[in-house]
Each structure stands twice: as structure tokens, then as C-alpha cells.
Design a protein around this nucleic acid. Structure first.
Lengths: 111, 111
DNA sequence: TCTAATACACAGGAATCCTATGTATCGGTT
DNA sequence: AACCGATACATAGGATTCCTGTGTATTAGA
């Protein structure tokens, strides 16, 4: 997977996942890895700084939780501001796909 | 349009357009702008450096041409190496779309 | 004549993601 | 009991991409 293409989709997918239920970082990465059959393998060096930025921007909020196992995890949930940002990002993503499709369908198959 | 999402698609679309016929830089930008109803507006500061990089990597080649009008343009055409790269980029793009779709369709509509 | 559009180019900066490294806990195996 | 892989978070530094801003020059139209 060309990692350059991934840029910008990280925030979109994190917000999308958190719009369903609160999750912690490692769980988010594992979920995406599993659901894409390994096509998306987010690195910790990308994931955690991105979560911190989303929180700094007020799009998500996180709290430490200690389960009965004793392991500490930081659970994030999406905010109202985050839901608005998600709607915008979904719109941008659809525009991108449509735009790329229009250019490609004129030339695809000639590669 | 969230410019971060665009990253990586520039090379893909340039190669795709050039796979059909040789074009010059300004023509490429104008074509993309027109065909996407203005959704994609590539800046010169992105376009020309990208063309230079694609040429440096041997994926495209350019020659100066002076038309009857007297205006000089640098026409680029895709190379064999460029066609191979295009096939790879098309594959990556499809993987990206499929991966994003899988994650989104679990949560979309809840934004 | 003046302006907008055409056509190319580059320096500097912002944003994103990666590699590499570090810390610490938990569960299973030997 | 000791070890090791998986779990869980974090940060520094670097590579890459795209943008803003600026510069040069030609052409066509008002």
C-alpha cells in the first residue's frame, strides 16, 4: 500500500470508528488491520500522535480506564465537534473519490 | 477539498492522463480542473515540482515544443516504466478505496 | 496601453506519516 | 520461576508531499 495515499484518511477513519463506540488506540489499530485484511497497518508513530492531535483539536476526548485485568487503557470518544468534522471529512472523501474516478475512467485500461 | 486527502493522487492522475496522450503542465492542470468541475485545483507549486520528480524517476519524459503561435510548452509523455508505475498506483488506489469503504460502511450514517 | 490568461519555475514552510526507540504490563510456555 | 510475545502507550527525528508566495515571459483582448 502506497503510504502517501493514506494521508488524511487516518483522521477520517478514526472519527468514523469512534462515532460508533468509544475505543482505545491499540483497539482502533487492530480493528482497522483486521477489517481490511491487513491492507491497512497503522504504525504507533502515526496513530498516537494523530489521536493526540484530534484531542487537542477537540474532536475526540479520552479518559484513562483500568479494567479488572489491571491493564490501563485510554478510551477515546467522539465529541459533537468531532461529529461535525466527520461529516465534513466524509464529504471531502466522496468528492475525492468522484474526482479521481472521473479522471481515471477516461484513461483506465490503457495502462 | 481537504488537501491532505489529495496527497499521492497527483502522481496517479498525471500518469493516468499522460497514458492517453502527451500533454504539457498547464494543460494537465486545466484538464483536471475542468473535468472535476473545479473540485481539483492543482497549484503550480505542486504541479511542476511533481512533474520534475516524475521525470527524474524516469516515469515521464518531456521535450520543449514551440507551436506556430510562438509560445513554448514542455510536452510530457509517459514511459514504459511510467506505465508499470501507473498500474501499481491504480492497484494501490483501488485497495485504498476498498479499505476505507469497509471501515466506513460499518459506521457511516451515524455521523 | 493595460490587463488577464497562458506557461514555466523555485524557495520556504506546513502538515502528515514513517522508522526507531523507550517504558511497562499481561499471559502462556518451558 | 524465568522467559518471551503480545498488549498498550509515548516521543524524537526524518522523509515526503503539497501549499503559499514570488518571479519571469509571452499572448490575446479590452
Amino acid at each position: 500500500m502506497d503510504s502517501e495515499l493514506l494521508k488524511g484518511t487516518l483522521s477520517l477513519l478514526i472519527l468514523s470508528l469512534l462515532s460508533r463506540k468509544p475505543m482505545y488506540g491499540y483497539e482502533i489499530a487492530a480493528t482497522v488491520h483486521r477489517d481490511t485484511d491487513g491492507a491497512f497497518t497503522w504504525r504507533e508513530g502515526s496513530l498516537y500522535p494523530n489521536l493526540h492531535k484530534l484531542q487537542a483539536d477537540g474532536l475526540i476526548a479520552g479518559e484513562w480506564e483500568e479494567k479488572d485485568t489491571g491493564r490501563k487503557r485510554r478510551y477515546y470518544h467522539i465529541t459533537q465537534k468531532g461529529r461535525r468534522a466527520l461529516r465534513e471529512k466524509l464529504k471531502s472523501w466522496k468528492e475525492l473519490c468522484q474526482g479521481v474516478k472521473r479522471i481515471l475512467e477516461r484513461t483506465d485500461g490503457q495502462a
